[in-house]
Design a protein around this nucleic acid. Structure first.
Length: 444
RNA sequence: CGGGGCGUAGCGCAGCCUGGUAGCGCAUCUGUUUUGGGAACAGAGGGUCGCAAGUUCGAAUCUUGCCGCCCCGACCA
């Protein structure tokens, strides 16, 4: 993409309303525009990041065996009456009437609807286990939206729902999602730790929240410092192997890690040696629940067992805050000059800076390199503005492109361009060909 | 929803106390000179001063009501 043809409204000054760094940087980098409290337009750059995160979530969900689908944002109140949640949910739920006066709502979550879908088609033990998911916009009329997309009223969420014959099988589904989440967050370069959590209004009795440590987080967490050493890495799991997944679960849940809601000071001090006790602020980026038959019972979502009995299915739900992750990623990856995207989610893979726009040789070298990078399948942002070098560097730093190739007449005399890492600032002088190869290798 | 604050050009702000018909910086546009880390000069465009009512000869400024937004707290992906 040539910058002169793109839509990238970067701001030099910080909008006064933005309090936390991710919100400020998202506004300054032209990623979002506030439309009203807690509701944002995703401008092209922000939308690109959002889609990349979404893509990773899709891939890891499907790798774990979850099946993608899409449910509507608008739901009928009737379904919610069946579970009693229409009255229970409170003013957080946006209630709407259609032209005939039917009561509708903008979905804050989808347990009721997915249970309705499941019960309509699945009645046999042969139909389970199943995990269905979608990535869809939700609306929760928060008392106090804040922090940009970190606590919006409208937000994009991946929500998965599992259906199993019994609790044992359901807990395997739970473990599948837990492992999928470990992989998902790690792929984004985020260290998110599952911590024992309250179940909240969605209900149930088995739940973990995934938290990313950050000073601006809204939760307080308490954990054993050894948690920080755990990584999932590239290990290959057999998703059907219950013992193996249980092993992963045990590995992650064996150490003390809790949110303030479930924190138990006595247990913390008993289980964790003093020098390893940590507390921190953290951002919740996902939550998984097992809630048994909470919805299947009132909604009569039953399956027939091999011996002819009917049992309500055991369910779980599994959320990832996709839009919130954009903010969380920035909280975790920035410096005083702007965002520093991890390669996995960056909106553009490499920036190309023409340091002397209008100089024939430089223009030609840039055009050539741009064409070759694009042909190689790289997503390039070519800053071809007639601007000073400093402004181009500052823009590229602000929007956080992890790698940058700088082309100028001085280097070209020696046949060199510069390849710079946004994260380390390290710069190498290379031939254009070598720079291209390096970038290809980075993203291979 | 309780407490606090703010609405003046795309963004950041001054002007309000003490009423006299709107200004600064950045951004934008034009021109010239520049160009290796956010350029300089000259010129230009852009505002129903959140909305409504009131007081007044006259309201961005004073009064009342409403709306919107932000922050702190109680709640949540």
């Amino acid at each position: 993409m040539r910058l002169t043809r793109y839509f990238l409204p970067v701001l030099k000054e910080t909008p006064a309303d933005a309090q936390i760094v991710s919100h400020r940087l998202m506004l300054r980098a032209g990623m979002i525009r506030q439309s009203s409290a807690g509701i944002y337009s995703w401008l092209p750059l922000g939308y690109k990041v959002l889609r990349r995160i979404e893509q990773i979530v899709h891939e890891e969900q499907q790798r774990a065996g979850a099946i993608p689908m899409l449910m509507p944002t608008i739901q009928s109140a009737d379904l919610w009456r069946e579970t009693g949640r229409y009255d229970a949910y409170g003013p957080e739920m946006l209630r709407i009437e259609d032209r005939s006066g039917r009561e509708m709502l903008y979905g804050p979550t989808n347990e009721d609807m997915i249970t309705d879908i499941f019960r309509a088609y699945c009645g046999s033990y042969r139909d389970v286990p199943k995990i269905l998911y979608h990535i869809q916009w939700k609306f929760r009329d928060e008392v106090r939206p804040r922090f940009g997309v970190m606590r919006g009223r409208e937000f994009l969420m991946k929500d998965a729902y599992s259906f199993d014959l019994d609790q044992e099988s359901a807990l395997h589904s739970y473990n599948q999602m837990l492992v999928a989440y470990l992989k998902t967050y790690e792929r984004m370069g985020l260290q998110a730790f599952p911590m024992r959590a309250e179940t909240g209004p969605i209900g149930g009795d088995y739940s973990h929240e995934f938290l990313v440590l950050a000073d601006t987080g809204e939760s307080e967490v308490f954990f054993d410092a050894k948690c920080l050493d755990l990584t999932f890495g590239d290990r290959d799991v057999d998703w059907d192997d219950k013992a193996e997944l249980q092993g992963v679960y045990d590995e992650w849940s064996s150490m003390y890690a809790r949110t303030e809601d479930t924190h138990d000071k006595a247990a913390f001090e008993a289980e964790v040696p003093e020098d390893r006790r940590r507390s921190s602020r953290a951002i919740e980026v996902g939550q998984i629940f097992y809630f048994g038959t909470k919805y299947s019972e009132p909604m009569n979502a039953v399956v027939t067992t091999p011996d002819g009995e009917k049992h309500p299915v055991h369910m779980g739900s599994y959320g990832v805050g996709v839009s919130r992750l954009v903010g969380a990623l920035i909280e975790a990856n920035h410096d005083e000059n702007g965002i520093i995207w991890p390669e996995e989610v960056t909106p553009f893979q490499v920036g190309l800076i023409n340091i002397r726009q209008g100089d024939d040789a430089t223009d030609a070298a840039c055009a050539d390199l741009y064409a070759r990078m694009t042909k190689a399948g790289l997503d390039v942002l070519y800053d071809d503005r007639e601007a000073r070098a400093g402004e181009k560097f500052a823009t590229m730093d602000l929007i956080g492109i992890p790698w940058r190739i700088t082309v100028g007449p001085r280097g070209l005399k020696e046949g060199k361009v510069e390849l710079t890492s946004r994260r380390t600032g390290e710069t190498e002088e290379l031939s254009p060909e070598a720079a291209l190869d390096r970038v290809k290798q980075i993203y291979a």
